[in-house]
Amino acid sequence: MSTPSRSDRIPLGEVQLPENLLEKYQAFLRSTVDSNHVPLEILLSCKTRIRQIHGLEEAENIDGFDVPVISSSADESTQKNALVVAEKITFDVHGIEDVEVDELKRLLGESGCVQLITALAFFDVESRLERVLGAF
């Protein structure tokens, strides 16, 4: 399984996804990122990790992934917990444990937890679409 180069990536609109569906799909994806209950850096690090698991981005550091700079220890703790769930949601969704979600709920609240889990699920969906269709 090779990693597609960026120049090979095709926008979804060009693979003839109906315009209305594409528009609503993109609006929904934006809402998972800009709902402001979860720091953007955490979402981006999770997205990077999920894309790496799917072989869509190269892992470049010793831990296997690059993470954006996190500015506070609270966010660092949230990021670690979020990355655990990001990895499991990609290939071991039944392995996600109550205690892991409880911790995210404690750190982010119910709204943040909904935003994070939804974003992670659809980062995975986006990666699968890109992997299967060759489109993003």
Partner: peptide, 24 residues
């Protein structure tokens, strides 16, 4: 009602899902 914790996401998801089922 769980998704309703993030009303904006629920609204956009509902829009998308309705379009997905409506025609294709």
């Amino acid at each position: 009602n769980v998704m309703l914790h993030s009303e904006k996401i629920l609204q956009k998801f509902t829009d998308l899902y309705a379009e997905f089922w409506r025609k294709s």
